[in-house]
């Protein structure tokens, strides 16, 4: 569904993906899922709701940690990936496709473009590892 689109990343490791139909999805990065380990529970955002950038929109739990999911840009949730309720491991298996968090609407395309692209994000991770 997001195939062939472009991905943009936040410093808190969420992605925004724009597909060929100009539809937007959000999720968490491959790096984030690997740091979390086996994901056992996801609390999803509310469909129909508008969130400002950096608002807390949900939570991801592994056995012994909890991480918050933040809105990478200002967005409105169109629908959530309800498959995650029963199979949260989709995020581990396929964070950018089947493990997406929600389909969203974005008011300004430039908001997403203002985030890091794949290359910038890779550098960002490498840098933060050295800290």
């Amino acid at each position: 569904m997001i195939k062939g689109g472009s991905f943009y990343f936040s410093k808190s490791h969420e992605w925004v993906g724009r597909d060929s139909n100009n539809k937007y999805h959000i999720g968490i990065s491959d790096f984030a899922q690997s740091e979390l380990g086996d994901i056992v529970y996801v609390s999803l955002p509310e469909a129909g709701k508008t969130y400002k950038k950096d608002d807390k929109i949900g939570e991801i739990e592994s056995v012994k940690s909890v991480s918050e999911i933040y809105a990478p840009v200002e967005l409105k949730v169109i629908s959530v990936n309800s498959k995650l309720n029963d199979t949260p491991e989709l995020i581990n298996q396929d964070p950018k496709e089947a493990g997406f968090i929600a389909e969203v609407e974005i008011s300004n395309d430039s908001d997403a473009e203002g985030l890091m692209d794949e290359n910038a994000y890779k550098t960002f991770i490498a840098d933060s590892r050295h800290e």
Partner: peptide
């Protein structure tokens, strides 16, 4: 469900 508890959250 230890993530509810103080030592994690």
């Amino acid at each position: 469900l230890s993530t509810r508890e103080q030592h994690i959250r």
